[in-house]
Design a protein around this nucleic acid. Structure first.
Lengths: 159, 159
DNA sequence: CGATAATAGTTTATACGTAAACTAAGTGAG
DNA sequence: CTCACTTAGTTTACGTATAAACTATTATCG
């Protein structure tokens, strides 16, 4: 095991700047939250990415082109193909070629997916409460505001 | 004017929305930041996970057992094997069996890794500043505090 | 002492993120 | 009309996250 001296040295690594502490905290917090949501979704046979796609389709209320879905997620274009493949294999979405522009593939929710989403709504809200319930409403709003502000000032990400 | 109804509306509905908004903001902000860091690390031939492992080893100042590294990242046990495999193949770490307990595998930084980390330090700080520079010092500290508070109240995640 | 449990790490299998290269279909300039 | 360009989507290749099952080694209990 490590010696006492090495232990002392380990503590001597402070964050060089406050920005770094915030960014690290953000990464760690996100990771922790994701763990809990992953578990919830897995109980329903879904991954977080799959749930996200289904939510987007429900929110739109109509079929969407595949690349439009990719745009609304962080998913990069090639990744969306396999994601939709697996959702289709699970009977949760259907693909349909557009007639006017045969390059476009529309993706539509199935009724099975609608029922699954409805079953998930309450557990998702409950989990949000459980994960953030120890913050006051003011704190939650302030956190949201600060996160929005971080994103608002970010450099463009599409080269 | 039905005060009870207003009370219910204020107390329940907006708060659930507020919590979801905060959680969503967190996920989106994290994704955006990760994009920029991934690009920086890629220019140096590293992935974010690999950089994270190297940082942990440098912070410790001594070789660490493989599972100790996994503990300090979000990496789950099986994932760490391949991660260390690739770092070893890149000449950035070395594996060494422990003599007292032959089950344990220590991982040590190579000098090549130390040089690489040193070259990355300034760009990493610069990127942090560029990504969070539009927030005031107070806001950055408040963001850090709120994120810490979120994590502090999270349910245990060790099944 | 020996059976058994616990620990450290790897292997296997599936899902996803990302870049690069590719196919198929629509658009536009000459 | 034809050839180059653009757009929508897929395939391919690699790195990583996760669960489940496995090997090897050490600890423990009866």
């Amino acid at each position: 095991m490590s010696t006492r001296l090495q232990h002392e040295l380990k503590k001597k690594q402070p964050f060089e700047v406050a920005e770094q502490a915030a960014a690290l905290g953000l990464v760690r917090t996100n990771d922790q939250l994701q763990i809990h949501f992953s578990r919830l979704f897995r109980q329903f046979g879904l991954t977080p990415s799959q749930y996200n796609v289904l939510r987007i389709l429900r929110g739109e209320g109509a079929p969407l082109p595949i690349l439009e879905i990719a745009d609304r997620t962080v998913t990069v274009v090639p990744g969306i193909t396999g994601l939709i493949d697996r959702l289709e294999a699970a009977g949760l979405v259907k693909r349909a070629r557009c007639d006017e522009d045969r390059r476009v593939v529309y993706v539509a929710l199935t009724s099975k997916a609608s029922k699954l989403l409805a079953k998930l709504d309450q557990p998702v809200v409950d989990l949000h409460k459980r994960l953030m319930g120890h913050l006051s409403r003011t704190e939650v709003n302030e956190l949201t505001r600060l996160l929005d502000k971080v994103r608002s000032g970010l450099p463009e990400s599409e080269p």
